[in-house]
Design a protein around this nucleic acid. Structure first.
Lengths: 231, 231
DNA sequence: GGAAGTAATTTTGAATTCAAAATTCAGAAT
DNA sequence: ATTCTGAATTTTGAATTCAAAATTACTTCC
């Protein structure tokens, strides 16, 4: 294997490193996505050399990215024994949703006080798109909008710590949902809950909004729990 | 400056890199502490070369540590322009305490259900030591025990996500408290609140414990807020 | 045929090197 | 004196190199 012709940066265009603020961030971003979508199996070992070739970067920025991901808990670094993708532990996923639920509750309280009319209209608009996706059974676009609306809600809540914290937790939530491969029944229920959220938001009813958003996350958690622990 | 005699690892023993699982972690740990205690002033630029000499390590592990700290939000990495210690933004500190308050609330709910008698006895013991420290006005030891009791409480709550999340937020809380340079008046009140927490825990009164722990964090936040915004 | 020990290979951790970008400094022009 | 220009220096980003540890493969012995 000495005469392997090194291919141009990478074969798979989906894996190419593009629009990079800095190289390690681009690599971290890519890795996150790969772990999220289970392209890297939980528990599997990550070969530095292999990933370097895949991404077309040297080990330095890759290893920097690995350190960041390890800090986020997506991978584990065993000293002198390489990086492993963390397993999806049902207990940890359960714990995660409990934490997310109280954070959503906080978000709801703040939103009722702070959302402007324009912002509420924007949320309504995203919600309408989501309903349309549901009716057309456009699953992945619904998923994308769902991420987006959550992101905007934490942003509009005006608590910057919450807004910075949520995405990294959401990454794990999304990973668990991928693994759980949610069903349609829950989809309908979820849309209804979003409807209730919009109503409470428009009424600016803090306690109600807080309760519903928290409950929504709890129920999502229940559904994921059920599928991860088929007992 | 070509004949500089390189000193043994480092001059200041307090800065020496010791008990390291891996080098970058040890460096990250040290840096966290230095930022926490305002040895590195908020807003100040971090010179890689200088820190390498201080720690006696090469740039590689230092830069890995910087990436991790940036991810935690303790420093900012401006591309091609170095690392800066993040400023302590009063608004962000305020937001932080709001988030911590709901997390403490969750912790309280869980603790009432899950703490064993032995664990409650352990918490009581730490609390007793804290009271003794208060009576003897041993400020720094009280501070240390306060960190410890919070850490144990999240651990005993049994929610691993909470237990992993809290320390990194606590780092920022501690940093804000250092910056605010808390006064004695609040100290007495704080001890009383801890007393109430113990009582609720022993009664295993979930709602009460949740409320008190959350309130305790909110009040700490109020005190810090007041000192950071002297208006 | 299987286990144990040892050499070769691979992989990791960390220092060094190299190139590009930013900063500093000196000198010239206004 | 001040501002502009451009070379020298420093600092950063990333690749490469080197040493130590771990893994693999091979040989020998039972």
């Amino acid at each position: 294997m000495s005469d392997v012709i090194k291919p141009p940066p990478t074969a798979n265009p989906a894996l190419e490193i593009v629009h990079s603020p800095s190289l390690y961030q681009a690599v971290a971003e890519r890795l996150r996505l790969m772990i999220l979508e289970n392209m890297l199996a939980p528990g599997s070992r990550i070969s530095e050399k292999h990933l370097c070739e895949t991404f077309g970067v040297s080990r330095t920025p890759l290893r920097e990215a690995l350190k960041v991901l390890a800090n986020e808990g997506l991978i584990e670094l065993l000293p002198n024994r390489g990086a492993h993708v963390t397993e999806i532990d049902p207990q940890e996923v359960s714990d995660l949703f409990d934490v997310m639920a109280v954070l959503e509750g906080l978000s709801g309280s703040l939103l009722a006080d702070r959302a402007s009319n324009e912002e509420i209209a924007e949320i309504q608009s995203i919600h309408n798109q989501m309903v349309a996706c549901y009716q057309n059974q456009e699953r992945s676009e619904y998923f994308r909008l769902n991420q987006h609306i959550h992101h905007r809600l934490t942003e509009i809540s005006g608590n910057r710590v919450l807004h910075k914290l949520a995405p990294s937790l959401m990454t794990k939530v999304t990973r668990a949902r991928y693994a759980a491969n949610m069903q349609l029944e829950r989809w309908e229920q979820s849309v209804e809950e979003h409807e209730l959220i919009l109503q409470a938001l428009k009424k600016r009813d803090g306690p109600a909004l807080s309760a519903i958003m928290s409950l929504h996350m709890q129920k999502t958690g229940d559904a994921v729990r059920q599928r991860l622990q088929p007992n």
